[in-house]
């Protein structure tokens, strides 16, 4: 009954979180409002200025990072706040819970990033991508890395007493290598270099993702277990 049922159990946890989110809209509303408000502040402050596309590449990821910080801890924090952690302990293995929630966060962040990026491309006129393959691969790898990093940190802060401010504080040093790399790769896509020139960035992003998933796999039980 091991792996086969573990995958379907993971899927069930994911679906539960999905329905729960669709009913309560805790994370989704916070995330969307965050993206919209930050984006409008940025648009106001840019005004008619000519801002370099390289700088705008950085701004895009700042929006994505902070919106991640505003909503992605919900999956774990809400279980902790409502006291349903024990319930999960009683029905599933720790890693089942982790991967269910990781999947949920990745889907949520993926949807959010599509929304953010489309809005950004439409509204920020100074930002134009030349090499779309680089851009799209960067967004995908960035979403995966950011989602994985923020999920394991969310599991940690859910156990702490003061959660709100702690999330970005703990996440930033962990996610910084990823952020610097995706910002760099996005710059490359704006500059329009050939795809091969971004391979180095992609390698860093892929190995970062693998390392984070491996360490989460090894350490999650320690976090989850009371």
């Amino acid at each position: 009954m091991k792996t086969g049922s573990s995958i379907s159990a993971t899927w069930t946890i994911f679906k539960k979180d999905m329905y729960s989110e669709l009913r309560t809209r805790y994370a989704l509303n916070a995330l969307l409002m965050f993206v919209i408000t930050t984006l409008s502040v940025i648009l106001f402050s840019i005004g008619n200025e000519n801002v370099s596309p390289e700088l705008l590449a950085g701004v895009l990821w700042i929006i994505i990072f902070f919106s991640t910080m505003s909503g992605l801890s919900r999956t774990f924090v809400s279980e902790e706040e409502r006291g349903t952690v024990m319930t999960l302990h009683l029905i599933a293995r720790p890693l089942t819970v982790f991967f269910g929630k990781l999947l949920f966060n990745l889907i949520l962040l993926g949807a959010l990033n599509v929304f953010t990026v489309v809005l950004y491309l439409l509204l920020v006129t100074g930002f134009s991508v030349v090499n779309y393959p680089i851009f799209i691969i960067t967004i995908i790898l960035g979403t995966l890395g950011l989602g994985s990093g923020s999920t394991i940190i969310a599991a940690i802060i859910a156990k702490a007493n003061t959660k709100g401010t702690l999330y970005p504080v703990l996440s930033f040093p962990i996610l910084l290598p990823l952020l610097l790399t995706v910002i760099n790769a996005t710059k490359l896509s704006v500059e329009g270099v050939p795809l091969v020139d971004a391979i180095g960035e992609f390698q860093v992003l892929i190995s970062y993702l693998i390392v984070l998933l491996a360490i989460s796999y090894l350490l999650f039980e320690y976090i989850w277990k009371e």
Binding site: T12, I13, K16, Y19, S20, R82, G83, M86, T87, I91
Partner: peptide
């Protein structure tokens, strides 16, 4: 023990069964 508030009694049991 806390069960899931935003689900019905039946949905809760259905979730536990599937997990």
């Amino acid at each position: 023990l806390q069960l899931y508030d935003e689900f019905t009694g039946w949905e809760n049991l259905d979730f536990f069964r599937k997990v």
